[in-house]
């Protein structure tokens, strides 16, 4: 099973590819909208890419709860273990 750091690192690559944010900025405490300037459409792209990368399903209703990078990493960890 992937570690928290591995998931964060892979997610950072995704955010970098889609929104052009430097990977080192994508830390667990960062808010997607407020800190990283990832808007709602980019967030949709990040979610779809994360679903493919981590082989999980992230329902539309859940996306609005993923405010920080840490929220997303925690959700992916739970989904992978579930």
């Amino acid at each position: 099973m992937a570690s928290t750091e591995e998931i964060r690192s892979d997610l950072a690559e995704i955010v970098n590819e889609i929104a052009g944010i430097p990977v080192e900025d994508v830390q667990l405490d960062k808010s997607f909208t407020d800190d990283l300037d990832v808007d709602s459409l980019s967030m949709v792209e990040v979610v779809v890419a994360a679903e493919e990368k981590f082989d999980v399903k992230i329902p539309d209703d859940e996306v609005k709860n993923l405010k920080t990078v840490g929220d997303a990493v925690a959700f992916i960890e739970r989904a992978q273990n579930g």
Binding site: S40, L41, V44, E45, V48, D60
Partner: peptide, 11 residues
């Protein structure tokens, strides 16, 4: 409804 349309259209 923008986001579902965006998701469907883009992918």
């Amino acid at each position: 409804d923008g986001n579902p349309v965006f998701r469907w259209a883009s992918f």
